[in-house]
Design a protein around this nucleic acid. Structure first.
Lengths: 200, 200, 200, 200
DNA sequence: TAATAACCGAGACGGTACGTCAAGTCTTCGG
DNA sequence: CCGAAGACTTGACGTACCGTCTCGGTTATTA
């Protein structure tokens, strides 16, 4: 019996929000960006595609940029790599996982739109930064595990190293505008292992 | 006597374009983005700031995105590093030069706007890609010089390595939204030297 | 009980249009044309004067010409002359009524703008023609009443005669660019009465 | 030999104007208005059609409106009716001549454009009014001849009567937007003859 | 059971930027 | 000085999108 009423108090009076709407909107954003690019992601277009009204969207997210970030999170979410006992293996796992996500159609456009959105002032910036931090957190963990384990050099700065790991893949996609592949992941793994790995 | 007029006027009939306009517009874009951010870079605002009419702008660039790319080129132009006889030194020169440019106010915003602009189809994309390629060309040259010299490993892929060099700085600025500094450049130089440098 | 809800809301879904906007726009057009002439009737100026946004105007009328016709209708509307039992008296009533309207400041400019607008193809033309027909309908009625009554000659063509009545006043205003006055109306009444009236 | 140098002094220094240009421009205006309507009569379009530069046009006419009036004059010029010894016959001659001109393609559009142009302030207005007066002068002459001859009533106001003659045809064309035909001219002649003719 | 409060779709609203077009002026070259 | 060609400013045009607000109506919780 205990805890039975925990959830009930969370809801005030009035009609509750329909979960269907939230999901439909996020899907609509991803669909539109994938099929037609960022230019097509209009609030009206999203509403029409999701079969939802504009106020219903604005009740959930304060603006377009916030919606973009939320949509990006469903695509490029947090990544978890288990302790494999070896830095090199875990590094490769992270890179391969990213290749897979970045090769999905629409990811490049989504990322570009996200970057543009982040240039805003205000609360959007905070949300974006926390999202960016979350994206890199797993890489950081791997580096710290490696340091503790001893197969990552003790003198590397984890923050700089994490940037070195995360940056090239996204750069190739967004700046060079080409899809990263497994060969690229392998090359990166080799180079980064030499860069931060403890000498044999 | 022959050849006296080799460089004859390359100009067709009619009034030639005023150079003053082209320069004023590009400056206006940079000023606006620096002082007020990408949102303030309105075609009307640019025209007003440059003391120029809108049609004069559209005669030179077909759309806003093209203008953005042109403006970015004047800020983040091609970089030249002379042969210093040592890969490590040249690497550090490239990274330091980039730190300097990226720390200038407005560069982050300009870059973000540029990335968003590049998501367009059509000619804008081509212009952007050629620009991106130009940005990385010097890094490539350094790597190739190093390979020839023997202080860069023979087995590294130049393209992948160039991405490894160029990406982290821009990533820190645009994704992590922090100004890169000399310490970061030094950390990167250390790591990249280990990644691609020939073993002692 | 039946029929209780005959006049149920004829309104579709969504926020209804505000009547205030429609009225304010039409007034703004008339004010501007009266005070500053047709050249001042800019969509932006109308919007500003009416305290309304441009899209709100374009939602109601597809273009500037349509707006002009609508504004003209509120100024030079349909005219009604009751049966006075005598053609001559009714003719004079029509002419005097027109003198009054045409002497209002801005009517000449409005009419000239209207004529220019009518030269368009498409729907504008239809709207204009139906408006022109409405303007002449009362004149036609008077002529037909006179014919039935016997104080208008049986052999006159009503259409041609209606043109003879309506044309001179507007011609004097727009072509000769002078304000018609009561003396002119009296002269016309005399002549037209001889032209179409039944001989004593 | 006398008079040999009369014309030479009329010309200042420099290259004389080519007559070809003046004619080509006026023709281009009429062609454009006939084929595509007033909207197509752009200064650039006229220049292109005439194979002439814009400055060459502006050297001859101070503005677009003046050019329009000049073009209208070449189409709807001054009309001359000889003394036929009978008011009724001369009236019919005037009306038939107008029918012929007004039925030419493009005349309606030209007239509408002219009316719109006249709503300008400044010098254009004067030019337009003198043109309008010229258009009506022949009608006036006929009425005065008739009065002198005795087959026009002595008590009619010539100005008002001239308006009565000139207005209906142009009204049918521009306001009712229909081509006047000979039947209409005949109806008008009958009515106007009764309106101003001396009783048998 | 009734009231209340928050939800829902639909769509108009103000504001602001976009990219285009026309008028009239000015500048270059050549005849 | 005339001519063609074309760039220049000014200012209006009509469209698109954003974020808000107002409808009529629905659905849940509270009184």
């Amino acid at each position: 019996m205990a805890g039975g009423q925990v959830k009930r108090a969370e809801r005030g009076p009035g009609r509750p929000r329909e979960e269907r709407v939230t999901g439909a909107v996020l899907s609509a954003v991803l669909d539109l960006v994938t099929e037609q690019g960022m230019e097509a992601v209009t609030m009206d277009a999203v509403a029409a595609r999701a079969g939802v009204s504009k106020p219903a969207i604005y009740r959930r997210w304060p603006g377009k940029h916030d919606l973009m970030i939320a949509a990006a999170e469903t695509r490029i979410g947090v990544l978890t790599v288990p302790d494999l006992g070896d830095f090199r293996a875990e590094l490769r796992a992270v890179l391969d996982a990213r290749v897979e996500v970045y090769r999905m159609p629409g990811t490049a456009r989504l990322l570009a739109g996200l970057i543009a959105a982040a240039e805003e002032g205000g609360e959007v910036r905070g949300a974006y930064q926390s999202y960016a931090a979350r994206i890199m957190s797993e890489t950081r963990k791997i580096l710290e595990r490696g340091k503790a384990r001893g197969d990552v050099r003790a003198d590397v700065d984890v923050r700089a190293a994490a940037t070195l790991v995360a940056a090239p893949m996204i750069f190739r996609l967004v700046i060079e505008q080409q899809l990263p592949d497994e060969g690229f992941a392998a090359d990166l793994a080799d180079m980064i292992a030499r860069a931060v790995g403890a000498p044999a």
